[in-house]
Amino acid sequence: MKIPDVGTTCKMNISTVTIGALKEEGGTRGRKVTIGGECTLPHLTFDGDNPHKPVIAGYVSDIVPDWPDFLQKAIGKEIHSPDEWAQKCVEDFKVDLISIKLLGGSSERANRSPEDCAKLIETLLKAVEVPLIIWGSGDMEKDRLILQECSQAARGENCLLGSATESNYMTMAAICKADKHKLISEAPVDINIGKQVNILLEDAGFNLDDVVMFQTTAALGYGFDYVYTIMERARIAGLQGDKLMARPQLCDIGEEVWRTKEATMGEDILPRWGDVKKRGPMWEAVCAQGYLQAGADLLIMAHPEAIRTVRKFIA
């Protein structure tokens, strides 16, 4: 009797999502990004070849985040100008796309008007030729207006908009359908809600082939294992035929890692933890690489050194 082939075959491929539209497609992007399409878990090349490598989006925000000096310096003076920051991400840090967070739109911060936010999106679209991921400010009420304006400003550019939750999915589905964007479906570290949001989006007439799933993200040391196992379980369910879960997944590494004490505090506060200028980007890179193992398709990252490390890992 011959030794049986114990390789596993998937019942369903993860959906493929392309972000960005070229000139001939009604947009102005110089290049597009395609993620998903997996037929097996990451790195299991003996089971099959996953068609698209994970991609990295450069973290950009309209106001400078509350980040440590060494991180701001690593990015450079451009951090004070979103379009220059985005350009630097593309040209110097070699990211595949740009993630813009309109933090200043929040009424608790700069309280920028939706029109101002939309102008910034127009500026960014001119400044870089890579696709955009557009997030609101985190202020639920305000984001309804901000994302609507920004979506219209980027109409036809096939951006990825964030995000649809159980409470705003109708609006987000309508906006993205009207202006031809892809959509992030978000759940608060909860696989059941993640699935439910996708059911609701489908109910609202939104094609799940245009969805990227986001289980929020936990930094290493702050519930990383919860998110890791959720993402892994969602991916396995998708490969086994659960079409609601067979979607590419996103991780916002930069946002979470640069809030942790391990990545930001020097040896004066954390003795024997080593130089934070090295430790911080290592923390971000290791966190990102962990999530790649869980099945992440799209990573949002901030520190150029961490981006370089993870790019090498992906290649």
Binding site: I191, K195, I199, L200, E202, D203, D242, L244
Partner: peptide
């Protein structure tokens, strides 16, 4: 995997 609307889905 459970979701509130598993029957409807």
């Amino acid at each position: 995997i459970y979701a509130d609307s598993y029957l409807e889905a």
